[in-house]
Amino acid sequence: MSEITLKEMSRKPDALICGGRLCAGCDETIVVRQVMKATRGPTIVTSATGCLEVSTSIFPYTSWEVPWMHCAFENVAALASGIEATIKAMHKKKEGPLAKYPTVDVISFAGDGGTYDIGLQALSGAIERGHDFTYVLIDNEAYMNTGIQRSGGTPFGASTTTSPAGKVILGKTETKKPIDEIIIAHGTPYVATINTAWPLDVMKKARKAIEVDGPTFLHSLAPCSRGWRFPPEKTVEIGRLATQTCVFPLFECRQEKGKPVYELSAPSLAIAKRPENKKPIEAYLEQQGRYRHFFRPARKEALLKELQESIDTRWQILCEKAGV
């Protein structure tokens, strides 16, 4: 098993290879490439329906060099449950094709639609049952594959095709579900947020998630140039800004004796220690077309203030939980 350093990992071949058909600059494949770099051995991947799945498996082609399966939109965690149960059964019975591998890791990739909304039940069930698998939420904050419709993961104010910024209603009127808290409340052994702007952090957390027994959850914020409306070269930059503005703080949460223990990750810890480094949310919002109505035709001061305050409050709550 290779150690997680940029040097080592840069030599590891990709599990997801060239020739996929996602938009240029898509973060989804950056997430997958970085997470899959951290695998420790034989691994089976499942994908929920969504941009990643449709673009990496267009028959007769596949971009997956590891065993990979897609079944449907809302059931990726149930699909993984069955695979994980098979691994257990074959190890127990000492027979069957997977019995020969000392470990087989199961990783599931799903979008925000497949996680916050239609797939939440299957995910909740799989976590409650304690299946040993790693669930990676690729959160681009809308149903991108079907044309940028709002989801439970779409943040307040964002314009999508089913929460358009109109003359009366300014984008989504509801807030983003606190998915990490929902998952942590299940007693999930390991939950972490990840951001591809910090590849080493992503890979270290992914390795941890894979190694931990039981269900683990990685939440990546995945900027989408098409849906968020920014030039494709800005994908990683905008992701980075989400963390620098504390819109998407990076942290880990383990369970110790039935209690969740939060820890801020380096980029967010640095901000907690030196709050003057925290960037205003405008820096993040103004780069994205989905928030255009916050600034044009006129600046919506009240709205910006409200949003900044809610981000500040959530950041403060997280800092308290992490004891900083």
């Binding site: 940029l6 840069s10 997801l16 060239c18 240029a24 494949t29 590849p199």
Partner: peptide
């Protein structure tokens, strides 16, 4: 030779 571009390329089109 920081290798970061390898990790950021969405296509896996940059090798070291």
């Amino acid at each position: 030779k920081c290798t970061l571009c390898h990790f950021f390329c969405p296509e896996g089109a940059i090798t070291v």
